[in-house]
């Protein structure tokens, strides 16, 4: 078995948004959509802080599809458009998506975005990887773990571009992979564990 995943070192994450834009570029993500966001946790403004001056803290959290082992989105999808593939990725067959947005209601991470209208692209052409399908209006989309890149044996674009090397990509089912070792050694955790979705994306400090 293969379970492809990403582990994110939150200590090294500087909230620079590079991964968010790398993802947007690679995947031809339209205006007003992100498959990958970096949020300032618990704050209502970007680069905000928690606490009271001068005892402040701030942490950045990159958040995208968690490629859950028990994906709530896949469970509720009426047409099987969302599926768990043989490499452990949660993927969407856009041709099957009827746009019911059941998956968006079910995903605890708000990882999905929807083509509410005819996608507007800025710049006005299909940028990004040419193998990435162009999604029509009326379908949901999200991080594919850079399916097209990872199928070619490359690492996802967010991993490739991260300026501080906070991201590690690999196979959770390979105990010798860097990601498996990191998860074990650094006591990695998952987001919203109580949701029971068993994310494959891990975080550690």
């Amino acid at each position: 078995m293969t379970r492809l995943a990403i582990a994110i070192n939150k200590t090294r994450c500087i909230g620079c948004q590079t991964c968010a834009f790398a993802c947007k570029m690679q995947n031809n993500v339209p205006e007003g959509m992100r498959w990958n966001r970096v949020i300032t946790e618990g704050c209502d403004v970007e680069d905000g802080a928690l606490g009271t001056y001068p005892n402040l803290s701030r942490s950045y959290l990159p958040i995208a599809c968690q490629h859950c082992e028990n994906p709530a989105c896949q469970r509720v999808c009426p047409t099987g458009a969302t599926y768990k593939d043989d490499k452990g990725r949660v993927e969407i067959d856009y041709d099957k998506c009827i746009g019911c947005r059941m998956c968006m209601a079910a995903c605890p991470y708000n990882a999905r975005v929807f083509n509410w209208n005819e996608p507007v692209r800025k710049p006005d052409f299909n940028f990004g990887d040419k193998e990435v399908p162009v999604r029509p209006k009326g379908v949901a989309e999200k991080c594919t773990l850079c399916k097209e890149r990872t199928d070619r044996g490359e690492e996802p674009m967010c991993v490739r571009c991260c300026p501080t090397k906070a991201r590690t990509y690999g196979d959770l089912d390979d105990p010798n992979s860097e990601i498996s070792k990191l998860i074990a050694e650094r006591h990695a955790y998952v987001l919203l564990e109580e949701q029971g979705t068993k994310p494959q994306v891990h975080y550690f400090e």
Binding site: N28, N126, K130, V132, V134, R135, P136
Partner: peptide, 12 residues
Amino acid sequence: ADNWLAPAEAHA
């Protein structure tokens, strides 16, 4: 591309 029933394909 206003083509409703066209499958989502990779870029030309």
